[in-house]
Amino acid sequence: MNEIVVLSGKGGTGKTMLSASFATLEKNMVVADCDVDAANLYLILQPKNEIEEVYVSGHRAQIDYSKCTHCGICADHCRFEAISTINGKVIISETSCDGCKLCSRVCPVGAIDMLPNDKSRWYAGAYRNGQMVHARLAPGEENSGKLVNVVRNYAKKLADETNAKTIIIDGPPGTGCPVVSSLTGVKKVILVTEPSKSGFHDLKRIFELAESFNLKSSVVINKYDLNLDMSRKIEEWCKLFSIPVLGRLPFDKQIVEGMLHCKSIIEWQPSSVISQEIKNIWQTVNADQS
């Protein structure tokens, strides 16, 4: 199985655009949208979800005020500043609670219950070129890395069942826990960047992360013509670190136009410069079987 992850560090550089393009180039694909915090790929691929599952992201503490004596022992133990005593009343802040359960364990009268955070969901179903898995982490919930694992595992299962050769992973922004979960064990890492100071800065950080997992990265420069000088600097940096630059995509308003019609640029304007370049990138990625 060939797992390819698309990452960028910085948001908005074109991860989902590129993933959607790859996902519509061939038949019998499996796609895993691992940006569980703000999933967007389904807007283009429009999968018919046959599976909808609950994901419990953790627990949160709740005080049973019929038992609570407001002794404050729980507040003394909480490391997340989630419990405070206001006018003699003990209150838990839901937004600060980390779900460690220590307060519930130390409460002498058993007044604190742990409730499951069960509002997150994950989905799987067919789209026009294969199978897709995506998720929706409920607002303010954590353990997005674990949810990424759930999405990836189900994508692998689907790939086995359908004999798919490739899984495309649309990764989340950043360099934290969900990104780590998105790239562990993959075959290839594609880093999408844009020619801006911030895009370049973030590219260096995400590259460093991939390196720390001994993963080989390659780079796609998106919107390269918005600042040719900066694009050149990025290429020079890639050369220095022997990172292959797979392609350069021009800025094109048609990408958004296609998006408005739920189509990738490959489907919307198959013969455009950008579509040709993406096809070349895809060939290069697949030709390299190392």
Partner: peptide, 12 residues
């Protein structure tokens, strides 16, 4: 970015 803990910790 996003709507999970880091976002909440900020907007809070």
């Amino acid at each position: 970015p996003g709507i999970s803990c880091p976002f909440i910790a900020t907007v809070d």
